[in-house]
Nucleic acid binder design. Structure first.
Lengths: 204, 204, 204, 204
DNA sequence: ACTTCCGGGACATCCCGTTATT
DNA sequence: AATAACGGGATGTCCCGGAAGT
């Protein structure tokens, strides 16, 4: 593949990602993708012989990868609670700064295809699974109890808060979710005091 | 309105609600709505002169109303924590029992229209707001601190868990969310001990 | 027919006439007629069992009748040349004053149906014929030569000028047509000097 | 543009022009255009991305261009009066020979869109303006007085006569208009006698 | 490796006319 | 005399995919 071809492919993918992130699978009309990317229509099926589904799947995966890097960056030098706070802060800024367009790049497509058993739905499931795994690893490294369950809950909390914030055009749900996430994770683990009670949420 | 008309209108709305719940705004093609409801096509714009947007908005509101009644029923004779547990239990059953089709009747449309400033998005926002208010009232009645924030967080948690469960075709996220919700709400309020510390999440 | 019925019928006809005059047969959608007249839709086929064609034909005839009265009024106390001038003046005022909507109430429908052999086209032909006859009678009374041909030419001139004025959004074509019409009719007929040179258009 | 594409585009345009000429904007249903041209429906929006309005505008302009060439051909070797006579003769033949379908390719659309402020109406206005200018130039070259006004009047006369002839299914109005046009233009300009009185319509 | 163009179907919308009901 | 609701077809538009032609 020549350099020009790679550039075209990347621009197509970028346009598809943005449109998908904004409004889901059906919002990303191929004509619009072609128009916004400036690519010729014929090129689309050269670069994405699998058609629209392949294009959207790659767009979703690329958007997910972008977020994964963001998570990794937020985790540097922070414990789990700090990481979640930082991640939510970045997500809130992204969302508000884009006019409430850029939320989770996976969620809309996931819901639109949830009933089917398509590769697209499986890709979304895979992405969510990888995020959960990444966060669970982070919690496990800190010695938190039941890291898998907590990771799932934290992801659900973030996704749900993103949904509410986008719908209300108001970042408050994200801030409230951040506070709740800190409570769910619990206090910083003191050195030499491996976890076991951190998830207690109410005083005896 | 005649009896026949009311029946047709209800059937149209039912079909639209089911299709919307399954896959969002674009999944609910009007042709399909007409086909599945058995209604004559000419009647559609008689009953919904506002076109598809009016139809989908009413379908979303109807689906939301259905869930609100479910919430109200789940709350009878239970405290807040028990209510959330019961609600999630019902949602999980509904979701799994429908072949992962019936999740939140609002979420998909909310995400698809989040970027726009349409009446549809505002309707979704309104519905979420009413759910938050209902749950906040429940928490306030028990004397829980900061009931608004907690209600938002609980709704986000449920919505996010529904999203993950639908995407994974696995109810585990909902069960994990239920456990986390109980922790977030805290212990039952003892009589004579009005709230104030219930949101503490870790022992000193 | 009761009074209320007559009123409804008249309002329907008025709305149809206005819409037809503005943009022809297809511009007068029955739904719009019903909406603008405030009449119930069911009434339409009670008052006009012949359907849309009957309605539009009556609307065209009513518009034509209105103009015929206008012509008759303009002719009072004027000779033929003065009448044409006055008629064009009124038409120009009507056209400009209505935002270039009210031109000839017959022409658009006539052109739209010219190819067919429908009652509608025949009605238009009839109306034009009656206008030609009326003007020919006026010319004959003044002793002008070949009144039928001149009447046809004058009508053509007026209709063509209305068409140009409406299209250009500029009344100049009507004023130019008025001047030409005076030239075509010629000098006032002197008593005792029966016609023969009246069509001279320039002074010696 | 490939050869095949150009052919398809031309056939679409031809069908649209014929249907428009016959009965105006609404008579030219796109389905019928597609059917009569034999073009694939998908090609329509490839060749005319502006949709129906673009198609009809181009059809009107093409019909107008065809007539402009006809005028130019009729003017060769004839003075202004002879040109008008020849033009009307050709128009009458065209009209009668087509079963009263082919009149002015602009008029119907012009009237249907006269009230709006659409590009379509402006295109019609432009076409009429160019015809007036062409005829005014012809008159000016012969030294006729006030060529612009006369050109407008002649165009109005021809358009009006076409309207009447189409409506009546009778070419007489055109013949009468031709005679009147000759009178309006006046005698041939004698060499060495630059205009000033040429608009005299009757010999002393 | 890319463009033009074809292909036909689905979309939401609006059309005109009719039927039961009152 | 009028009303609510039906009935289905036509409209213009846009869709995604593939084929022909460089």
């Amino acid at each position: 593949m020549g350099m020009k071809g790679a550039g075209t492919r990347a621009r197509i993918l970028d346009a598809a990602r943005e449109l998908t992130e904004t409004g889901g699978y059906f919002n990303a009309g191929l004509n619009q993708v072609v128009a916004e990317s400036g690519a010729p229509k014929g090129s689309l099926y050269f670069h994405f012989p699998g058609g629209k589904d392949q294009l959207i799947e790659e767009a979703v995966r690329q958007g997910a990868e972008e977020l994964a890097e963001l998570f990794a960056h937020a985790a540097e030098g922070r414990d789990a609670a700090g990481t979640v706070t930082a991640v939510i802060e970045v997500l809130a800024g992204r969302l508000e700064g884009s006019g409430w367009r850029r939320g989770c790049p996976v969620a809309t497509v996931a819901l639109e295809t949830a009933a089917a058993d398509s590769p697209l739905r499986r890709a979304c499931s895979e992405v969510y699974g990888s995020w959960e795994a990444a966060f669970a690893a982070r919690l496990r490294a800190e010695g938190r109890p039941d890291p898998e369950a907590t990771a799932t809950v934290l992801l659900a909390l973030v996704e749900g808060a993103l949904l509410l914030a986008r719908t209300h055009h108001d970042r408050a749900p994200l801030d409230r979710a951040a506070a709740a996430a800190r409570r769910l994770i619990g206090d910083p683990v003191a050195p030499g005091r491996p976890g076991g009670e951190e998830v207690r949420t109410a005083a005896p």
